[in-house]
């Protein structure tokens, strides 16, 4: 009896988070991107009128990330952390799902459009 209640609770959490995931993974139409490290905003730029470039961001522990802006998209081109998850995440697409580099405490995310 008790295990049935637990099963129902687990199923509910699963379904709710599945719906939320679909919502979170939608593509964004925002254009302003900010780069945040340790809770402070380092850079803010508009993807439409920023030249293609590579920004190097050093982490406090001596590591680095290369943030690449190309054809109106932004991605992390290179990092010297062992897991490389931020590089594999590819370009920034969703409003809610930032690119994060956990070892270097770096976040690349969309911000509200300044209009």
């Amino acid at each position: 009896m008790k295990s049935r209640k637990i099963l129902i609770a687990v199923l509910l959490i699963f379904l709710v988070s599945a719906c939320l995931s679909v919502f979170i993974l939608r593509h964004s139409d925002q254009q302003t991107v900010e780069i945040v490290q340790n809770g402070t905003v380092l850079y803010t730029f508009d993807l439409n009128d920023t030249q293609d470039q590579i920004i190097r961001i050093s982490a406090p522990d001596g590591g680095y990330n290369l943030v690449q802006i190309q054809n109106g998209t932004v991605c992390i081109a290179e990092a010297d952390c062992p897991d490389q998850t931020c590089v594999k995440m590819g370009t920034l697409q969703s409003d809610y799902l930032p690119i994060v580099c956990l070892p270097h405490k770096l976040i690349v995310r969309f911000a509200e459009d300044a209009s």
């Binding site: 709710v16 995931s21 979170i24 993974l25 930032p98 994060v100 976040i107």
Partner: peptide, 8 residues
């Protein structure tokens, strides 16, 4: 912002 990862 990282809470957005929780559902996934």
């Amino acid at each position: 912002g990282v809470i957005a990862y929780l559902p996934i």
